[in-house]
Design a protein around this nucleic acid. Structure first.
Length: 380
DNA sequence: AAGACGGGGCG
DNA sequence: CGCCCAGTCTT
């Protein structure tokens, strides 16, 4: 298993953010005990009843934290429950095939997470009999464990007093400290250090979850509900009169528009599908053969060429089926879908696979392919 | 430091 | 339709 470079020293902080002491009140920042007790009291009274808060199993907590990466709680709940039912322990997960894991992950996005979780489970079972390391530092060596997930699992499952910084916490603390404009790295270090001091409690896991819950329920984007906040009295952002000013947003990148085409070939009761390479976009997922348009190329030509390159089959267009639009985080695609038929074969061996409609439903497919599959299997 | 990596929900 | 979300990994 690959080793990851150790993270930078988090102790060193810059003073390019506004420190509480620089405000009018010298005792602006309340004591860690007061902050923690107010936060945890609020959490105890207002926490949502989420499935991963009903367990102390490190495996279950780990799965929830990975699913929650860049994914909203409401979306994760159903996936989490189904995943834990399918793979109840780290050993079950390790013994599963990757395509079974991907099928459970289908529709959740960021499929590298599913590969990492699978790889990690196999590593743990083979190297430590399925037991997790219990410190943030050791956890961060595992695949799919970055700074956030390592701290989250270490604190929630094992009680280690380390802060977990996610988008919620960054937003909450940016407001609470009223950080002045600085590089994201500098702001992160400042928040990390502050929270490490505030984490004077034996409920480290609850403290971290409370911070995130506060961000999700009260200190929300774009405007916080300061009247509901347990620490609003000492919040520099609220004192500034415009807590919604944080965090500062970076300029959005332009999303390129991409055109692509693919073909549906149905013959002798079976559909032709291809699997995407394991690494890269939508790695390991299945789709209908095709490809992106090259310059000055028609969708029909791209469709036929894509099928030939991906499967070795020479196809002809029968009729246009539909057009599917799909937006990714960094580009947008318009996919033209054709009904095709086989008119010949090349000598190069293809990698296509023929599947029945039943098997088609069992495959983990890309978003666009799922739309096409739905249309084929559930015609209106 | 910046870009790749998904998808659904919300105003 | 643009913005956001319990981030990680690669370059």
């Amino acid at each position: 298993m690959r080793k990851k470079p150790s993270p930078g020293n988090l102790e060193k902080t810059q003073s390019s953010v506004l420190s509480p002491q620089s405000l009018e009140s010298p005792q602006f920042l309340e004591s860690p005990q007061t902050f923690g007790s107010r936060l945890l009291s609020w959490y105890d009274a207002n926490r949502r009843d989420l499935p991963w808060r009903r367990t102390t199993d490190p495996y279950a907590i780990w799965i929830s934290e990975v699913m929650l990466q860049q994914t909203q709680v409401s979306r994760v709940v159903e996936y989490y429950q189904r995943f834990l039912k399918t793979f109840p322990t780290v050993r079950h997960l390790a013994e599963a095939r990757l395509d079974e894991v991907l099928k459970q992950w289908e529709g959740l996005g960021y499929y590298g997470r599913a590969r990492a979780v699978h790889e990690c489970a196999r590593f743990l079972v083979s190297e430590t009999s399925g037991k997790f390391p219990q410190t943030r530092g050791e956890l961060e060596e595992l695949p799919g464990f970055g700074p956030y997930t390592a701290a989250a699992v270490a604190s929630i499952a094992f009680g280690e007093p380390v802060p977990a910084l996610d988008a919620n916490v960054i937003r909450v603390m940016s407001r609470y400290l009223a950080v002045s404009p600085a590089t994201p790295t500098t702001i992160r270090k400042r928040i990390q250090t502050t929270l490490q001091d505030l984490l004077a409690t034996d409920r480290a896991g609850d403290f971290n979850q409370a911070m995130m819950e506060l961000g999700a329920l009260v200190c929300r984007h774009p405007q916080p509900s300061c009247l509901l906040c347990p620490v609003s009295e000492t919040c520099a952002g609220r004192l500034s009169g415009n807590p919604g000013a944080w965090p500062v947003k970076k300029q959005p990148a332009v999303k390129p528009q991409v055109r692509a085409a693919c073909g549906v070939i149905f013959q002798r009761g079976k559909y032709l599908v291809v699997q995407r390479p394991l690494q890269g976009l939508l790695g390991g997922l299945w789709e209908f053969p095709g490809g992106r348009l090259q310059s000055e190329e028609t969708v029909e030509t791209a469709c036929v060429r894509g099928i030939k390159e991906k499967t070795g089959i020479l196809a002809g267009i029968v009729a246009p089926l539909t057009t599917v639009n799909h937006t990714f985080s960094h580009f947008r695609v318009e996919l033209s879908v054709f009904h095709c038929r086989i008119i010949g074969m090349t000598f190069t061996s293809g990698k296509g696979k023929w599947v029945t409609s039943i098997q088609l439903q069992e495959l983990a497919m890309t978003g666009t392919a799922r739309k096409i599959r739905k249309m084929l299997l559930e015609p209106q």
